[in-house]
């Protein structure tokens, strides 16, 4: 698991690479929370995420909630296939409110998160 970050016009972009799974949850959590402190506008590029499990989902949900609570913006982008599959299964697309580029055929199941 590696996280590259970029600062761009006040927006902090994070590029997690590899597995967002329980094996890396402990190291990932402080990095993500730290990003929230550093910037008001954060983008999380998920295009290089190979695997996402419940612990990863929880971290994303935590980050989103903390961001909203602090009045900051968190944008998830570039959802990889693995991320899309999980979001679709758990009906999380709407929960995060980010545009997702769904591959054809994945659309259909109507999940939602409240």
């Amino acid at each position: 698991m590696e996280i590259r970050s970029e600062q761009n016009n006040g927006r902090l972009s994070l590029f997690p690479e590899g597995d967002m799974t329980i094996y890396h949850a402990a190291e990932l959590m402080p990095v993500l929370l730290d990003a929230l402190k550093q910037s008001d506008r954060i983008e999380l590029d998920l295009s290089k995420v190979c695997e996402l499990d419940t612990s990863g989902v929880q971290l994303l949900m935590l980050m989103k909630r903390e961001a909203v609570a602090a009045g900051k913006s968190l944008k998830l982008s570039g959802h990889s296939a693995a991320v899309l599959e999980v979001f679709e299964l758990l009906g999380l697309g709407g929960w995060f409110g980010d545009p997702q580029l769904l591959p054809a055929g994945v659309l259909g199941l109507g999940g939602s998160a409240i």
Partner: peptide, 12 residues
């Protein structure tokens, strides 16, 4: 078929 699934993060 899972016709609907809601994820609850209330306990987070």
């Amino acid at each position: 078929e899972i016709v609907h699934l809601t994820t609850l993060a209330d306990a987070l």
